[in-house]
Design a protein around this nucleic acid. Structure first.
Length: 201
DNA sequence: ACGAAGATTGGCT
DNA sequence: GCCAATCTTCGTC
């Protein structure tokens, strides 16, 4: 096991990084010492200025998106629909506001804690399928925005698993109808035949 | 300062 | 399958 280093994230090819994140383990561990983690099974890439679906499209620079312009390797967490916290990994070099949304996990560590956070009695795919659901299960909120993914409370681990290309399904991103033609781009990646991802669109 | 819409989820029909 | 929840963010007045 190794924590993914900063230079994993600072590369320019965000689409490649989004695919390489599949099979890695997203971990949170807060002051209470409880470790919760999941194997990443679904991601979506957002390619900065040129991507209409990206919050930083056309160079939009606001209090919310400011952190996306930092060097890759940090977290970008924002509130969606006033209810859900969505966790993103920042990629590319400083000044290039790329990010990858983590959309689905296979639960690994701290499942009782995750069930408690989600108010569920038994494990089921909906525990960590979907970006809002997995953030709640891992205890993620906006206070993590800007945090470096090299130490607690959040980081990503390489457990030696690489997902082979034929096992990766690319499809259009969801919930971004406002993005015009860019809504068609196949920037959503997930592991084939994995029950912990959301179904194909 | 005001109002519309959102990278979603879960409960109800 | 449809729709409300809920509040921040951002564009416009």
């Amino acid at each position: 096991m190794a924590i993914l280093p900063q230079n994993f994230y600072t590369r320019a090819d965000t689409l490649l990084i989004a695919q390489q994140l599949l099979g890695k383990h997203l971990v949170t561990q807060f002051a209470d010492g409880l470790r919760t983690s999941g194997r990443i099974v679904e991601t979506e890439a957002y390619l900065g200025r040129e991507d209409r679906a990206c919050h930083a499209w056309n160079g939009r620079f606001t209090d919310r998106t400011r952190v996306m312009y930092e060097s890759g390797g940090g977290a970008y967490v924002y509130l969606c629909y006033g209810i859900h916290h969505l966790f993103n990994v920042i990629t590319h070099r400083a000044g290039e506001p790329h990010a990858i949304l983590i959309r689905g996990l296979e639960p690994i560590d701290g499942i009782p804690t995750m069930l408690q956070r989600r108010g569920m009695a038994r494990i089921a795919p909906r525990l960590t399928a979907g970006p809002g659901a997995l953030a709640k299960a891992l205890g993620i909120d906006r206070s993590l925005t800007g945090h470096s993914l090299q130490s607690p409370p959040t980081w990503i681990e390489d457990h030696g698993e690489d997902i082979a290309l034929p096992e990766i399904i690319a499809s259009p991103r969801v919930g971004i109808d406002y993005a015009g033609e860019d809504a068609q781009l196949p920037y959503r990646f997930r592991i084939r035949n994995c029950k912990w991802t959301s179904p194909a669109k």
